[in-house]
Simulated assay, not measured.
Amino acid sequence: MSEPMTLACPHCHRRNRLPAERLDQAPRCGACKEALFSGAPVDLGGANFNAHANADLPLVVDFWASWCGPCQQFAPVFAQAAGNIEPRARLAKVDTEAAQELAARFAIRSIPTLLIMHRGKEVARLNGALPPSDFQRWLDGNLPSA
């Protein structure tokens, strides 16, 4: 059995520890008993961002805003990718208007901006929206192993 890894629940944002080999066995949160993987991006803000960004599970973040046309066009591509990439990584959305402190912390200058976080560190960044195949290729080339 491998060393336990930590990941945050997409519902209550509590940290959970489980062996990596259990990721694809529909694990549930020890606190709220909800599924740890929902197949959809989780909305994050200042209060819950660090629980996910500091986890052992890679976090792919879409910094966006409701008034941004390219953000709106990319949203379905990002949502579909969540169902395909879990449990290899968690996908999250950060509304830059609602979470201005996070946008400033990560020096978001244009949107959409995509970040891959792993164990609290930024490992990849991309500005702009991508078609599904290019987004998947970017993920495959940049996602670290959990």
Rank of each mutant, 00 (worst) to 15 (best):
M1W: 13
M1T: 14
M1H: 15
S2G: 15
E3Q: 15
M5D: 06
T6C: 05
L7N: 04
A8E: 02
C9I: 05
P10G: 05
P10M: 04
P10D: 07
P10S: 09
H11G: 10
R14M: 07
R15C: 05
R15M: 12
N16R: 03
N16T: 02
R17W: 06
R17G: 03
P19C: 00
A20H: 01
E21Y: 11
E21K: 07
L23M: 10
D24S: 13
P27S: 01
R28M: 00
A31G: 05
C32Y: 02
C32M: 02
K33H: 14
K33W: 04
K33N: 11
E34M: 11
A35L: 04
A40D: 05
P41T: 01
V42P: 02
D43G: 12
L44H: 05
L44N: 03
G45S: 14
G46V: 04
N48A: 12
N48S: 12
N50L: 10
A51N: 14
A55S: 08
L57R: 10
L57G: 05
L57F: 10
L59N: 01
V60P: 05
V61L: 03
W64T: 13
W64C: 01
A65H: 12
S66I: 01
S66D: 15
C68W: 02
G69M: 11
C71L: 11
Q72R: 15
Q72E: 11
A75M: 14
V77A: 10
F78E: 03
A81Y: 03
G83N: 08
G83L: 08
N84E: 14
I85W: 06
E86G: 01
P87G: 03
R88L: 04
L91A: 10
T96A: 14
A98R: 14
A98W: 01
A99K: 06
Q100V: 11
E101N: 12
E101Y: 00
L102K: 03
L102I: 07
A103E: 07
R105C: 01
F106G: 09
A107H: 13
A107K: 15
A107R: 15
R109K: 15
S110L: 13
P112S: 11
P112H: 11
T113C: 05
L115K: 04
L115H: 14
I116P: 01
I116L: 05
I116H: 04
H118G: 08
R119L: 09
G120A: 13
G120K: 13
V123E: 12
V123C: 10
N127M: 13
A129Q: 03
P131D: 06
P132I: 02
Q136F: 08
R137W: 00
R137P: 00
D140P: 06
D140S: 12
D140K: 05
D140Y: 03
G141T: 10
L143E: 07
P144C: 13
P144W: 08
